[in-house]
Write a protein that binds this DNA or RNA. Structure first.
Lengths: 205, 205
DNA sequence: TGTACATCAGTGAACGCGCGTTCACTGATGTAC
DNA sequence: TGTACATCAGTGAACGCGCGTTCACTGATGTAC
C-alpha cells in the first residue's frame, strides 16, 4: 500500500486495513497507531487527519466488522429461511465463517475492549448483527412445546458461547492448543448434538 | 502489601499477586512489570531478583493457575466418581467456578499468549488439568453404544468450548454484552441440553 | 485558457511518558568461630 | 556472647526505545473568475 506522491489517495482505508492486519496477529493491545501509519507509508501525525486517535481507528475497524458480520448473518438466515432449523444452523456456520475469514475484524469486535455503546453507528451495527442470532433462535423455539421451551435468548446464548469458544480455543493458534479436529467440524457436530438435545433433530444419527 | 524495612520478606509472592490483580482488569498486555513492582512497594529492578523478566512473571502466574485448576478439576472429578455422568458434569462446573474465582489466573493461562511448552513445569501442570477433562469425557463415552459414539476428545472439546465461551462472553464484563442469565445457569443448562443430545440424560426434563 | 487563491492532506520536529532492562551500589541478615 | 565476614535482597540512576499526540509548516489539488 505505497503512496505515489504527497497525497496518499485513500489513506483512511489503508489505515484501517493496516490496523486489521496488525490487530490480527499482535492482538488489540499489541497494535500501535505508529506502526499502522508506517505500514501505510505515512507519518503518524497524518493519521489524525482521518481519525481522532488510536481508539477511534480501532472502533472504525470494529464498525466495519459488525457491518460485514451483520450482512453475512442476514444472508445466511435468509438462505435457510423457509425452515427455522436450516436458518438457525446457517447462522451458526456463518459465525464461524466470519471469524475465520475476517480474523482482524473479529478481534477488533470481540477482544479489543471497544464498547458497542461508543457511537450510535457502532451500537446500531452490533444490534443488527446480534439481532439475527436472536431472531433465528426465537423462531426455532416455536417448534418446541411451550411448557418445555427454554427462553430463546438462552439457547442463542448457548450457540454463541460454543461458537466463540471454538473460535478462541481451536480456530486461532491458541497457546499449545493443537486442535484435534477442524474447527468447522467441531462446531457443526457440537451444534448438531445440542439441537438433538432440544428435540429438534431426530434422536438417531 | 507494604514492606516494612529494606527487605520485603515475601516479594516473590507479592509480585505474583500484583501481577494477577493487574492482569485481571487490564488484560495481559496492559500489565506492566513496573506497575507490579510499584504495587509491591519496590523498585522495578528488584523484580529481577526473583524473575527473569516480565514474561517470566506472567508464566509463574499461569503456572500457579494451572496447578490450582488441576487440583479443582481432580477434586470435582473424584467427588462425582462412581457415576461417569456426575463426574463429567462436576468438571464442567469446576471449570466455570475456577474462571470466576480466579479470573487473573484464568487470563494468564488462556489469554496471555504464554505457551504451555514454555517450561516443563508449565507443560506438566497444563497437561494434568486438561487430562482430567479428557478422562471424564472418555469414561462417559463408554456409555454410548460404540457405533454411534463420538471420539471422546471431540465432546471434551465441545464442553470446553462452551465453557470458555460462556466465560468470555457472559462471565467477564465483555463490551456491552449484558448477560441475560447468570453464567452458571447458562453453562448448566447448555451442558444439560448437550448431554441429552448424546442420549446420556432422559429426553424429557 | 490562465491565474490567484482557498482548502486539503500531508510533513517533520518536538514533547513528555512509561516501559523493560542493566549496573554498580548498599543496607540487612545469617553464620562461623 | 561478640565480632568478622559472606550472602542476600534491595536501591537508584541511567540507558535506549517506541509510543500517542501537538504544532507550525508546506506541497498538492480544486475552484472562481
Amino acid at each position: 500500500m505505497a503512496k505515489q506522491g504527497y497525497h496518499h489517495g485513500n489513506l483512511r482505508e489503508a489505515l484501517v486495513l493496516g490496523c486489521l492486519r496488525l490487530i490480527e496477529d499482535k492482538g488489540p493491545t499489541g497494535f500501535s497507531l505508529s506502526e499502522a501509519a508506517r505500514e501505510a507509508g505515512v507519518t503518524p501525525a497524518a493519521v489524525y487527519r482521518h481519525f481522532e486517535g488510536r481508539e477511534d481507528l480501532i472502533a472504525e475497524a470494529a464498525l466495519q466488522g459488525y457491518e460485514i458480520f451483520a450482512d453475512l448473518m442476514e444472508h445466511a438466515y435468509d438462505a435457510g429461511k423457509p425452515s427455522p432449523l436450516a436458518a438457525f444452523e446457517a447462522t451458526g456456520r456463518a459465525y464461524l465463517a466470519f471469524a475465520s475469514r475476517f480474523p482482524g475484524h473479529y478481534v477488533a469486535m470481540f477482544e479489543s475492549g471497544i464498547s458497542i455503546q461508543r457511537t450510535p453507528d457502532l451500537h446500531r451495527a452490533a444490534t443488527r448483527a446480534l439481532g439475527v442470532m436472536e431472531k433465528a433462535a426465537t423462531e426455532l423455539a416455536q417448534q418446541i412445546p411451550p411448557e418445555k421451551r427454554p427462553p430463546p435468548q438462552m439457547f442463542s446464548a448457548h450457540i454463541w458461547a460454543m461458537s466463540h469458544g471454538v473460535v478462541e480455543l481451536f480456530a486461532r493458534g491458541s497457546p499449545g492448543t493443537k486442535s484435534p479436529f477442524p474447527p468447522e467440524d467441531l462446531l457443526e457436530t457440537g451444534i448438531g448434538i445440542y439441537l438433538r438435545g432440544l428435540g429438534l433433530i431426530a434422536p438417531d444419527r
